[in-house]
């Protein structure tokens, strides 16, 4: 029970009394109309991405393709593949490291309260709401200087960008884990303590085994956020060879020589990984959203 409160889900029991037929009709009609609205952009991207180059014309934007052709996707993939790979290289460390940090932080903030923790927590949380414009200029300077001082390339590279996502991902992941661990019964912790386990032991043997649902939520959240992010990426990676897919797509869409159906195919390609995550793990995705908003 307690854990469901921490990672909220939409209950499936629907309370309502039977309604007249015409009411149901209006309900379904309205829902269907809205569904069409939400599907509209995907429909356009899809049908035009699937048209052959001969068939592409702006005036026939809404017409179904007469035959399916993957030419546009192949061409878009040819242009975007290196950046797709960059995004993968970015997302893996940025997701895993932040999740680990968030789990440890959340555990301590929830179960090892110390003086000042109640002040520290909102200060930490503020970091997830700030407009990142307010840190960009020093961030660029820092990455350049720190990179030089340490003999690493941080500015302009995927590792540097991953570092940025890790740091700015700490507040949200800490929040989700803290709220989740807050609902782990204190008796479990006490029991561990009586068994002679310390902070680290209780984490390893008691808390971590219970953490899978929270990890799934956090990993999906971070994956989606980092994959889709644009501002840090466009400022920190100038060199196209190092740019993640969002920036490459923006360059492709702004380019004068690339056919617009290739741009549409590219947009779908960039959206594909997060869409797949959504389709297969949508329940957890939703819980992450609600956890971020409903604070416990």
């Amino acid at each position: 029970m307690a854990q469901q409160a921490a990672i909220p889900a939409i209950a499936t029991v629907a309370p309502a009394r039977p309604r007249p037929r015409w009411v149901r009709l209006v309900v379904y009609a309205t829902l269907t109309l809205f569904a069409l609205f939400y599907l509209l952009p995907v429909y356009v991207l899809m049908i035009n991405g699937l048209k052959s180059f001969q068939e592409v014309s702006l005036s026939r934007m809404w017409v179904l393709p007469s035959s399916f052709s993957l030419d546009s996707f192949a061409k878009a993939y040819g242009k975007l593949a290196p950046n797709f790979a960059n995004s993968v290289r970015l997302v893996i460390p940025a997701t895993l490291v932040t999740a680990l940090l968030g789990s440890v932080n959340g555990y301590i903030l929830a179960k090892w309260k110390f003086r000042g923790a109640d002040l520290l927590f909102p200060l930490l949380l503020f970091g997830m709401f700030i407009p990142y414009q307010s840190v960009l200029i020093p961030l660029v300077q820092f990455l350049q200087r720190a990179g030089d001082a340490l003999g690493l390339s941080l500015y302009g590279t995927i590792p540097g960008l991953a570092l940025v996502h890790i740091v700015y991902g700490i507040p949200i992941t800490t929040l989700i884990f803290r709220n989740y661990y807050a609902s782990v019964p204190t008796e479990l912790i006490e029991a561990g303590r009586i068994d002679g386990a310390g902070l680290a032991g209780i984490y390893r043997h008691v808390v971590l085994p219970l953490s899978l649902p929270a990890f799934v939520v956090v990993l999906i959240w971070q994956f989606t956020a980092v994959w889709n992010e644009f501002l840090f990426a466009v400022v920190i990676t100038n060199n196209p060879a190092q740019q993640p897919i969002t920036v490459a797509l923006q360059n492709l869409a702004g380019s004068q020589i690339v056919e617009w159906n290739v741009q549409m195919a590219g947009a779908l390609l960039a959206a594909l990984p997060t869409l797949l995550v959504y389709v297969f793990l949508g329940r957890y995705f939703l819980r992450g959203l609600l956890a971020g908003a409903l604070k416990g």
């Binding site: 952009p41 356009v44 991207l45 989606t224 994959w227 889709n228 992010e229 644009f230 969002t246 797509l249 923006q250 869409a253 741009q263 549409m264 947009a267 779908l268 960039a270 959206a271 997060t274 869409l275 995550v277 959504y278 995705f285």
Partner: peptide, 10 residues
Amino acid sequence: AISFIVTGTA
């Protein structure tokens, strides 16, 4: 689940 960049392009 989609990036603002994709939304904007579309």
